[in-house]
Design a protein around this nucleic acid. Sequence first.
DNA 1: GCGTTATAGTTTCAAATGCAACCATTGGCA
DNA 2: TGCCAATGGTTGCATTTGAAACTATAACGC
Lengths: 157, 157
Amino acid sequence: MPDHAPLELERFLPYRLSILSNTLSQAIAREYERRFGLGVTEWRVIAVLARYDGEGLAAREVAERTAMDKVAVSRAVARLAAAGRVIRRTHRGDRRRSVLRLSAKGWAIHDAVAPRARAHERDLLARLDADERAWLERILDKLAPARPPMKAHLTDR
Amino acid sequence: MPDHAPLELERFLPYRLSILSNTLSQAIAREYERRFGLGVTEWRVIAVLARYDGEGLAAREVAERTAMDKVAVSRAVARLAAAGRVIRRTHRGDRRRSVLRLSAKGWAIHDAVAPRARAHERDLLARLDADERAWLERILDKLAPARPPMKAHLTDR
DNA sequence: GCGTTATAGTTTCAAATGCAACCATTGGCA
DNA sequence: TGCCAATGGTTGCATTTGAAACTATAACGC
């Protein structure tokens, strides 16, 4: 009989990351889910629209920035627009593209949720000491490079 | 006008972890999905059954070990059993409980998939140097403690 | 200019997921 | 013993998700 060398799931890196990530996301999600009827996808859309405000993003750009696929973005935006949280217009000069912006209502939600999200992050990082935080930063940069901020003039002429 | 202090999604820890985790899981999942028609949930069940073999786990125990809820386990096991990949019997002495074991077919899949999973992990860790790996280990232990191996005699009398 | 190809975004259908209700069995305990 | 609560597991239903097909518009090549 061969020795099967079973995988030790609980030490397996992708598994542990998955658990950690789900635990965190769910904890945060619960909050704005309950208080604003806001799903994770919708929150992400709001977050990037807030960050790259003033330019009016196309859905595709939102997709790139949120790591969601275009279908997910489309649906999230549809819900947000229906709730009057984002304003969707059509790009003049390219009528395929949409131009998305937060409405006042959208901004209000952002301003309410963002601090809580940061608080969650802070709580999480509080479990680490300064060294560990620095290393984590560095390790994440290697494993999952954060994309550089978008260049406005290249994306929306 | 208030300054909105937008959340920088791409530096937000839970977000980055989520991206990383999804990227990894999907990369691995694609492989056994295509080659064995095996979903993530099913693979996880196989992994824990392999690891705690010889004891015959109850579904509830599988759920604990995989961080899946009991419904997900139930369905994964149903598919696996239907495909002849796990053997499901009833616990003598407690007829509510099931006793789950890998069949030869199940073991074959495990033995085919496990090395590839490990290879993925290796590739990932290869991007880090020894220091970084050690710190990652330590950080993960703090943020998402790996549960200690199950004590056989306590769980299956 | 006209046909072809590419891109933005939406819709549709199937599969995955989650939740609550449910059935069966067991364990407590009066 | 005989009830009631707790546990293991499954099922039904509603929601979410993903992949591919589809619509509309724009860009390209000749």
